[in-house]
Design a protein around this nucleic acid. Structure first.
Lengths: 210, 210
DNA sequence: AATAAAATGTTGACAGTGTAAACATTGGCA
DNA sequence: TGCCAATGTTTACACTGTCAACATTTTATT
């Protein structure tokens, strides 16, 4: 059956080499299609064409897979934000707004990732100390940008932590409300959604001006 | 064994009459102690001292119990907010700030309720159309208050929906980040938490001024 | 008061879940 | 080649939500 090895992912019964990444991707797919609540290890395994216990060779437990999804999410988010900033010729204040908009847009474009990234943390969490704000590059970027704006007098001279928290709160809140469907979907076309997004970020912006 | 009927809740094996409310309360307890993820129908039943299928006489399914928890939560939230407003001699703008603070404080004081109230909505949600913003009194109160402030020139003359969304976003975001432990608990004593809360609401406040 | 009906609670069953242990197969290295 | 570590499978167990069949208790009807 050598001819079957022509296409890679289909019929390599054993040791197909990149199962780890396949499982992560499959998890994301399932969350997208059926919601995080429906995600099960066995569904992941089945959809990946592998026995239900195979994932345990690559992940300690189910949470470990979710943790990987989150890690990939933070990476995507940073990348996108930096790209958007690089595209903009504006000053630091513009960058501040771009960070907020990028944050919201990432959440809307990758809701599965986002929900895993910012879901409830319990004591027995799969996010030991890995994903605390201080160790997440995107948050460092936010803080630095606020500081830059403060130094140039573009934002008010308040407590940095408090200002960063206000910023994080408003974009996180909007993103969560949106992807969890608390904002009615009806009659909210792309144009209106964009206006709403901008309005929310502008409120923040205005709230932190000198 | 007639003497056993002296105390009510203990030994009425059958038909104890208020099982429905007992189950709701037990659900809240379990969520508080072990997190929403750990909540199971069978644990509820066991803790309530009843067989594992008994809840089905009072609730269609597990989600129906959660729905009841949410309903009770909205009720508590409205009550508390109204009480806080009644206590305040201030003007509409003060009321606006009080609504925001009350919202955050409710979420922090009743995190189990709050998580159920504002958790992810899926298509197969237990919240059919019951808990849409428009039909929730607290949100009506928020909108009305913003309108009053606008009429008196206390808040800017923007789109009401957009302004309400900005307000909701920031308090929801902060509340969620807090109860889901994304804001590091360490070194955040009550005093600092209060300052943070106020700062967040004040940012919103400032962002919506004329 | 006797009895039928409705409400409420229990038992047993089933499919699906996460996870661990025992077993099987493969690929690479000596 | 032959061994061994890596990878995948099978089997098993306790737990979950839910349903159907059965048991008991309360309420309504005669």
């Amino acid at each position: 059956m050598a001819f079957m090895t022509a296409h890679k992912k289909q019929n390599q019964d054993y040791h197909h080499g990149n199962l780890k990444q396949v499982l992560i991707d499959t998890a994301v797919e399932i969350i997208s299609e059926m919601g995080a609540k429906e995600l099960s290890l066995r569904k992941i395994a089945q959809k990946a064409g592998v026995s239900h216990a195979a994932p345990y060779r690559h992940f300690k437990d189910k949470n470990a897979i979710l943790s990987s999804v989150a890690k990939q999410g933070f990476s995507l988010m940073l990348e996108r934000t930096q790209k958007n900033i690089a595209k903009s010729p504006g000053d630091e204040l513009d960058h501040f707004a771009i960070i907020g908009l990028s944050y919201i847009e990432f959440a809307i474009d990758y809701p599965s990732h986002y929900r895993v990234m910012f879901g409830t943390r319990m004591e027995n969490s799969y996010f030991k100390d890995e994903f605390k704000p201080k160790s997440i590059p995107v948050f460092k970027l936010l803080r630095d940008t606020i500081m830059d704006c403060q130094e140039k007098g573009l934002l008010k001279d308040g407590d940095l932590n408090q200002m960063a928290m206000a910023a994080w709160s408003i974009v996180h809140g909007f993103a969560m409300l949106r992807i969890d469907h608390h904002i009615p979907d009806k009659k909210l076309n792309e144009k209106r959604l964009n206006a709403l997004k901008r309005s929310v970020v502008m409120t923040l912006y205005q709230g932190l001006r000198p």
